[in-house]
């Protein structure tokens, strides 16, 4: 990947973006155990595959989600978090 599609600004060179890590659902802090919380904080799904990731387009200040295969580095789609259906 050398180009990335920002849902607001279109296709831009990768150098304009910052990687924000995998999008992960937070466990309910009130009900989860300490162990579950520690796992959420520290552990990662490190195996290759299609992942939902946070990406940030710097010049416009836009966060969005990219669905990317971490093996082939191909992005299948991008959207603003929570607006997945609208795409």
């Amino acid at each position: 990947m050398k180009l990335l599609q920002c849902p607001i600004n279109g296709i831009r060179p990768l150098s304009e973006f910052t990687y924000g890590g995998e999008y992960r659902d937070m466990p309910d802090p009130d009900t989860c155990t300490d162990k579950e919380w520690a796992a959420y904080v520290h552990y990662r799904n490190g195996a290759p595959g299609l992942k939902k990731e946070w990406w940030y387009h710097g010049p416009s200040g836009t966060w969005f989600i990219a669905e990317r295969d971490t093996m082939t580095d191909k992005v299948s789609r991008t959207y603003i978090a929570g607006q997945e259906e609208k795409q």
Partner: peptide
């Protein structure tokens, strides 16, 4: 490299 990739490709950057 700044983000996760499971490959040994090179980059020009």
């Amino acid at each position: 490299d700044p983000y996760e990739v499971h490959s040994t490709r090179s980059s020009l950057d």
